[in-house]
């Protein structure tokens, strides 16, 4: 589905991505975990067309899309749910979703849009109940649902999510993660950047660990959950307790 090769990007003289490569196969949920400032958001930004890579290549279903603008990436079937959600706060839930379907509606007409809208309300019934509410006045969890719903409206094959659990209560995080699992059962491919390593690795088919602009580790969700370095750095366990578990104490 998606392949990035030797991707480099940055802001001015600052190099944030230092030549990293990754791939996402159709139907996978791929997680990228890593500390603050590792460059995770820049990575997604450069895949979605918000940040122009300085070198390297990105291909989507075999087509070279390196440095394409967001409109083109969207048309190619790749949509980003950005960090901080970037909703249209003074507009209603319904209007936000309408703009999510902006390109689909212009291409395929109103009927396709209504179908997509019904699909989003099926996944997030809460949004259906609150169609007339202003997006900016909703709770964090509802806003995240709306951001995912807005992205779905563009009929993406690959959905990229940037820190979907940020700032949310544990119970709400659970809902969001089960929605991400539901995306896969709807035939979507998911690439997700997350601080909440434990929760995301449980549902991910594969994961990468990112450190200062490079991907340093790759494995299935289970492998990474069992990895000692990952446990220590991202799952908040001490070496001693890891050693204890290994020895069956």
């Amino acid at each position: 589905m998606l392949k990035a090769r030797n991707l480099e990007a940055g802001y001015g003289p600052l190099r944030v991505l230092k030549g990293l490569s990754l791939h996402v196969a159709p139907g996978e949920i791929v997680a990228i975990i890593g500390a603050n400032g590792a460059g995770k958001s820049t990575l997604l930004g450069s895949l979605a067309g918000l940040v122009r890579p300085t070198s390297g290549s990105v291909t989507l279903r075999g087509e070279d899309v390196t440095g394409s603008r967001p409109e083109r990436m969207l048309a190619a079937g790749c949509s980003l749910v950005p960090e901080g959600r970037k909703l249209f706060a003074p507009m209603t839930v319904r209007e936000n979703l309408e703009l999510g379907g902006y390109s689909v509606r212009r291409r395929l007409g109103r009927k396709a849009f209504e179908e997509d809208l019904a699909g989003v309300f099926e996944l997030f019934p809460r949004l259906g109940e609150r169609q007339g509410q202003l997006a900016g006045t909703m709770s964090g969890g509802e806003q995240q649902m709306l951001a995912i719903g807005r992205s779905l409206m563009s009929r993406p094959e690959l959905i990229m999510l940037d820190e979907p659990s940020m700032g949310l209560a544990p119970l709400v995080i659970k809902q969001i993660f089960s929605a991400i699992s539901a995306l896969r059962s709807r035939g979507k491919t998911v690439l997700v950047v997350e601080q909440n390593a434990k929760a995301i690795l449980k549902i991910a088919s594969r994961g990468y660990v990112m450190e200062t602009g490079s991907l340093v580790l790759e494995g299935t969700g289970q492998e990474l959950l069992a990895n000692r370095d990952v446990q220590r750095a991202y799952l908040g366990k001490e070496y001693s307790s890891i050693a204890d578990e290994r020895e069956g104490r």
């Binding site: 979605a48 048309a75 970037k86 249209f88 003074p90 309408e98 703009l99 390109s103 992205s151």
Partner: peptide, 23 residues
């Protein structure tokens, strides 16, 4: 109108609008 809403969306959040395919 969709274009009118797109203009409002763009002023509410430019990057969000970009990600929706609005120029």
């Amino acid at each position: 109108t969709l274009i009118g809403k797109a203009m409002r969306g763009c002023s509410a959040n430019r990057e969000g609008a970009s990600l929706c395919g609005i120029d």
